[in-house]
């Protein structure tokens, strides 16, 4: 049976992988209609591509947070490898939880900002602006899934601590008697009475 530490490490790696892939996939698309020709802007965590192309076909994304996702994913994978090798247990668990938390923070902020953008755009037609449709795409779902799976892995990694003390039971056990007298190098002097008894 796979132990809990190994499952935690695998979940951390899966979460990190999904988040990195998600950051390069398209996260959302906005379609502007009503004023002039229809325009589409497709965004991932790095760039935004407009269609039909404007002066610059690619621009930096409005919420360009690709680097934080990559950095946290790398930390999560490092923590997972340490967990698998069973080295620096406490450091691995601490880094795993902090990095998974930070990845979740980045993804949560991104999601809140995109939802807010959608809310803001719904007011535009009433002000005489264009009608805007905002669609969430596969990248956003991959990011959300990666953040949640990473968090589950990091929390599982914390609980492994309880099982460790049992493994040490088979080692050498040293007992100390209450008496503090050490045996002198040449033994304890034997009384003459003992010799007579033999």
């Amino acid at each position: 049976m796979i132990d809990r530490g190994r499952i935690a490490a695998l979940l951390l790696m899966l979460g990190a992988g999904l988040a990195v892939v998600g950051s390069f996939e398209e996260t959302y698309r906005t379609i502007y209609r009503g004023i002039g020709p229809e325009r589409t802007y497709t965004t991932n965590m790095w760039i935004v591509v407009s269609s039909p192309p404007s002066l610059l076909p690619e621009n930096d994304a409005y919420y360009a947070v690709g680097w934080p996702v990559i950095a946290m994913a790398v930390l999560m994978v490092m923590a997972a490898v340490l967990l698998l090798l069973r080295r620096s247990g406490t450091v691995a668990k601490t880094v795993a939880l902090a990095a998974a938390g930070a990845l979740a923070g980045v993804v949560l902020t991104y999601w809140v900002q995109v939802r807010h953008e959608e809310e803001m755009m719904t007011d535009w037609p009433a002000q005489g602006g264009p009608t805007v449709q905002l669609d969430l795409l596969v990248g956003m779902y991959l990011l959300l899934a990666g953040a949640v799976i990473g968090l589950v892995g990091a929390v599982l990694a914390q609980r492994k601590q309880e099982e460790q003390p049992q493994e040490q039971e088979e080692d050498v056990v040293v007992h100390q008697l209450d008496a503090d007298d050490d045996t002198p190098p040449f033994g304890i002097a034997i009384q003459e009475q003992d010799q007579e008894a033999r």
């Binding site: 934080p68 938390g101 990845l103 949560l108």
Partner: peptide, 8 residues
């Protein structure tokens, strides 16, 4: 960790 992600 969450706060660090939000701040970044």
């Amino acid at each position: 960790g969450l706060l660090t992600g939000v701040a970044w």
